[in-house]
Design a binder for these strands. Sequence first.
DNA 1: TTGATGATGGCCT
DNA 2: GGCCATCATCAAG
Length: 209
Amino acid sequence: MIPKKVDRLLLQPIDSSFFDMPTLELARSLLGKLLVKETRAGITAGWIVETEGYIGPADRAAHSYGNRRTARTDVMFGPPGYVYTYVMHTHCLINVVSGPVNHPEVVLIRALEPFCGIELMYARRGTDKRKEELTNGPGKLTKALGIEKADYGRPLFARPLFVAEGKEIESVSVGRRIGIENSGEARDYPWRFWVSGNRFVSKTRRQGE
DNA sequence: TTGATGATGGCCT
DNA sequence: GGCCATCATCAAG
C-alpha cells in the first residue's frame, strides 16, 4: 500500500557500506532499491528496475576503458557510492561509482518504477502519456527526478540525492547491455540486469528475457 | 580552436 | 525500423 503523502522521514539514505561490493553484485543489489531526489519543488523517488555494470579498465564499453582518467571519469577512481553523471546528446545519465579506490567501475541506472512525486515527474517530463514513459530509460528518469550534471560527485548515501531501502525482488533477468554496438567484444558481456517482467524496464531490445 | 563521437529519445514512415 | 536534434567531452592540431 502506497501512502498518499510520503513522509520525508520515511525515506532514509542507505549506509555508505552498502556500496562496498563487486560491481556486478551491486548492479543486482540496486534492483528494488529506491532512488530519491529532494529538491525545492518536492520529493521524487522510484524503485530501480534496470541497471548495467561498466567495469573499467578492461571493458571497452566503459568510459574508463584503459584506465583513462579525465575530468569526466575522475570520480570513478574514488571510493564507491558517489554519483557519476554525464551528458549524452541532450540527456543526463546517472551512474553509481563502485569498486575500490583506483578501480574505475560504475553501475548505470537505466530505469525506475515511479514511487512518489509522480505529478512532479509528469511536469518535468512535459508529457501526459502513460506512467511507464516517465522513467523507462536512463535519460528519462534523470529528467523525471530532476537529476543534472551538477549532481556529479555527490554521495548517494546522503541527501538530497540518495539510495534508500525499497522492496524485495522475486526474479532478476540478465542480458547484453544497450547501445554499445561499437565496443567490440564487450558488447556481448551479460552485464545488464532488470526486474523480470517489470513494465518500467526500457523498451529497447529485451532479449534474454 | 576544431572536429568526431556518442551508455538517448522523440518523432516519422 | 530510420532519422536526427544538439552538446559535453576529448584529443589532435
